[in-house]
Each structure stands twice: as structure tokens, then as C-alpha cells.
Amino acid sequence: MLQFLAQATPPETNFWQQAPGTTGLILGVVGAFIIGMLLFFGLSTIPTQFRRYIIVGFTFLAGLVFVLQYLWPRPINADFEKELPRNAVEGFGAWLGVAIDPVAKTANILAAFLLGLGIFSLMRVHINKIRRRAQDWGFSLILIVSSVIMAIFGFWDWNMRQFNDPEALLTSQENWKFANYVNDALFDGMYQQMDAAMFSMIAFFILSAAYRAFRIRSVEATVMMASALILMLNLMGALTFMWSGWINGLVESTGNQFLTNFDLTVVAGWLRANMQIPAIRAIEFGVGLGALAMGLRLWLGLEKGGVSS
């Protein structure tokens, strides 16, 4: 019986998650929407001086779950899916473990809302620009028209794949229809290619900067250039291969194993392991400490400015 229980699939639905298409899910979404709207309007009516306390309190509670989940003592082999907690401390730890899921999903949902907020903000700015016939309003018009066309064909394509293709035939191009082709042409044929072209321009600026700005005027610049040169040479497989062959030949003819230290891959590896990685690790430590300090200030509502001011 115990073995059977251990292999049993945990229930997929509970208060926090319902199966797709069920009445429970629809009621939950509608209920959450109504509560959300009421909260939204309710919070809007709160005087400005009290809003700070709400935001700080909410931030503190959200952060507290993750902090406690990480720091709360927990028996090494505890598996609260199969075992009952033995005391209140373990019970709270088990509850925290369950709470992380809805909190993490809420974080995902909030992050998704930020995308919506970004689109709303972008549209508002550019629609206003067109309405006022501001400078370069034509570009704003192109942006809005492009966005709308992309959204129409994107949703059309998604709708076909999601609701009209139970056998997943549309994963193969042979079965595509008009909307799939147009969506692909817009997304992969145009947008993605322009994205790649934009980034490829960096190469031109790098070359120009290397020629005009990378000047050896100090010891530091010389050391940096020498290191960069070794690492760049190491990226050229044909060169490292020939160099290795030459070094191996020298080692064989002289019997001096010390010469293997001059293999380009070995030198580049030494530079990486003993110079680059420790330096990056030191920087990361600094960044980590800074992030910790900033995180604590935000969590405890000590940070001035922004939403908490």
C-alpha cells in the first residue's frame, strides 16, 4: 500500500490550480478578475500618504515567503509529500514549501502583466504622437500598423494551432495554411531578420573602435592587449592546431616537456583560469553584495524614491 502511495500521481488540481476548461477554472478566473478590479479601484481611492504602507507591506510579505523558505530549518531527508510533519516547526516548513508554488506563479503573472503594461505605454505614446502630428509621426504610424498586423496574424496562427489542430499537424510546414505562412513571413521572414541585422552592425563599430581607439598608451593597455591577443588567437582553430603540432614536434625532438606550457591553448587556458575567472568572480562577489544590500533596502522599505516614496 505504501509503495502504491509513493508512486501515486499527486493531484493536479487544488485551490490554487484548476484543470483547463473546467467550470472551476472559469469561475476562478472571473472571481479573480472581479476581486482584482475591486481591489484596483479600492486602492486608487486610498489617500496617497497611505499607499506607501500598502506597497511596502505587500513587498515585505512577498519577500518574506522566499526568505523564510530558504532559511527555515528543515530535516535533510524530509519529504512532506509522503510524510506528515512531526512538530510545529516542521509543519510551518511544509506549509512554506506548498506556498512557494502560488507565490512563484503570482510572480510569473505579475511579470507577464509588465509586458502588457509595456505594450499599453508604447501604444499610448505613439498614438498621442500621431494625433499631435509630432515630428516623425510617420514612424509611429508604421509601428502601430506593424504591431496590429503582427498581432492579428499571430493570434490567428495561435488560434489555429491551439483550437483547430488536435493532431499537431501544423508543426509540419507541409500542413500550413494562409495564416501560418503570413505569420511566419512576418515573424521569421521580417522581424527576426531585422533583429539580427541590427545586432550585426555592432561588428562594424567594433572594427572601427579597434582601429581608431584601442591605443597602447600605458602598461595596463599593453597587458590588456597582449591578453586579448592570446585569447583571440586561441579562438582560431586552424592556428591553435598548427601551433599545437609545432609545440608537440619540439617536445618530441628535444624531450623537454616544459615546452608544452607554450601551447596556445594551454597559455589561453591559464589566462582564463588564473586571470579572467578570478577577476570575474571578484566582480560577481561585489555585484552580489550590492544586490543583497539593495534587495534588503527594497524588502524593508528603506529605499527612497520609486513606488515607496
Binding site: Q17, Q18, A19, F66, Q69, I100, A107, N108, L110, L114
Partner: peptide, 24 residues
């Protein structure tokens, strides 16, 4: 949408992190 929360949740309980997900 949130890598931090997603990866954390995957480490704690993969089934919950990906619950409700369906495939063709």
C-alpha cells in the same frame, strides 16, 4: 515570465511548477 521564480519552483516541486501544462 519570471526566471527566478520559475527556476526556484522547478527545484522545489517540478510537478507544481509545470502543473496544468498540456501538450498536443
Amino acid at each position: 515570465a519570471n526566471a527566478e521564480a520559475t527556476n526556484l519552483n522547478m527545484g522545489i516541486d517540478l510537478r507544481n511548477a509545470w502543473s496544468g501544462k498540456r501538450t498536443k
